[in-house]
Design a protein around this nucleic acid. Structure first.
Length: 347
DNA sequence: CTAATCTGGTGCCGTCTCCA
DNA sequence: TGGAGACGGCACCAGATTAG
């Protein structure tokens, strides 16, 4: 899905209609495609959830091969580029390719005798239950797509972290494993494996609350549960030396390796998704993308993370029922995963 | 003093599934 | 058909509190 292409692509032929005459033979030396594709994390996660990662990977590679955006690929060309032993984009043998093509029929493409007609990103998204693209699209190296399916799945999962962060702090806001299970459909155990494979760095975070005194400790214990402990600041990182603070563990934050890409095409895709949603009247089915947004939204009502203290303080004054966090300042605090906290008042 | 418990983590192992 | 990978269950970790 990497390259800008015309907004309208030719529709696949209706089954009853005679397939078009075979196109002229391809030139033997195709133009060298760029080494990376644009990946929309919501679509990648939906592929994982729907167990469509194998045909999904093939769809991305076929789009990559379709450099001039015609919307179709000749079957013999796909076979040559993806299954030949000496092909740089080889992913499997031709038998397996046939199997995967059958598995993705209708969702990712339609075939006639000679061509694979690729479905547009919007249609694939809708087929996978995604009705809105959130976060940022990311850049995925083609080598990440031609590796084993384990590596491909790991990159699909990691794209969520890569696409999550703000411009100032890419991917750095804490998110619990349990939330990740709900949002990505990937188990906790498997998340760790994927993180190892895709070089996603998980950072442990601690929140530093107010100075220790009996009443605030009680309030916070109510709010945070028994995970609360006292931190003695021997070196004076947070203020006076040896001052005791209330602290508690936060979920991990994650730093993934994929570079973010512009949101330009995503806006256009979201407009078309909205239109398609209205036409298909899908409003009652909770789609996968919205599930992700809703899950994160639920967590956000209780804990909200901000890039800077000023923004956190403003948000807290507007809504004091949610605890707000912002990254620890100098003294290496941010590197150690220290977050400052303004704790919610218990109602 | 010790065991149980809390939240948010990790490691290991057996079983199942997929793919060449 | 065999090996690699995915997955779930279980034990265990930190750093605290609480109950007996």
């Amino acid at each position: 899905m990497g390259q800008p292409r015309p907004h309208c692509r030719p529709a696949p032929p209706a089954p009853a209609i005679t397939p078009p005459a075979s196109p002229p033979p391809e030139t033997p030396a195709p133009p060298t495609p760029p080494a990376a594709i644009t990946l929309y994390p919501d679509i990648a996660l939906a592929m994982l959830r729907q167990e469509q990662a194998t045909p999904g990977r093939l769809w991305l590679l076929l789009q990559h091969l379709d450099q001039d955006g015609r919307g179709w690929i000749r079957i013999d060309l796909a076979r040559a580029r993806l299954t030949r032993a000496d092909a740089p984009l080889r992913i499997c043998g031709w038998r397996q390719l046939r199997k995967v093509l059958r598995a993705g029929e209708g969702t990712f493409w339609q075939r006639d005798a000679t061509r694979i007609w690729l479905r547009a990103t919007v249609k694939v998204a809708l087929s996978l239950g995604v009705t809105r693209l959130t976060g940022r699209p990311v850049e995925l190296p083609v080598t990440g797509l031609t590796a084993s399916m384990g590596v491909v799945r790991a990159h699909f999962y990691a794209s969520f972290h890569s696409g999550r962060g703000s411009e100032r702090q890419p991917g750095s806001k804490p998110i619990a494993r349990e939330t990740l299970v709900r949002v990505t459909g990937v188990s906790r155990r498997c998340q760790r494996e994927y993180e190892k494979i895709a070089h996603v760095h998980a950072q442990t975070n601690y929140a530093i609350g107010p100075c220790l005194d009996g009443e605030t400790a009680q309030e916070l214990a109510w709010e945070q549960g028994q995970a609360l402990f006292t931190l003695k600041d021997y070196r004076g990182y947070q203020g006076r030396r040896r001052q005791r603070y209330l602290a508690w563990q936060l979920p991990n934050s994650y730093h993934a390796p994929h570079a973010p890409r512009g949101r330009g095409r995503q806006k256009h895709l979201n407009r078309r998704l909205k239109l398609a949603r209205q036409q298909d009247d899908l409003r009652e089915t909770r789609d996968a993308g919205n599930v992700a947004a809703a899950e994160e939204g639920m967590a956000a009502r209780r804990r909200r993370y901000y890039d800077r203290g000023a923004a956190a303080a403003r948000a807290f004054s507007r809504q004091p029922k949610a605890t707000v966090y912002w990254p620890g300042g100098g003294g290496g605090a941010a590197q150690r995963g220290m977050w400052y906290a303004l704790a919610a008042a218990h109602a």
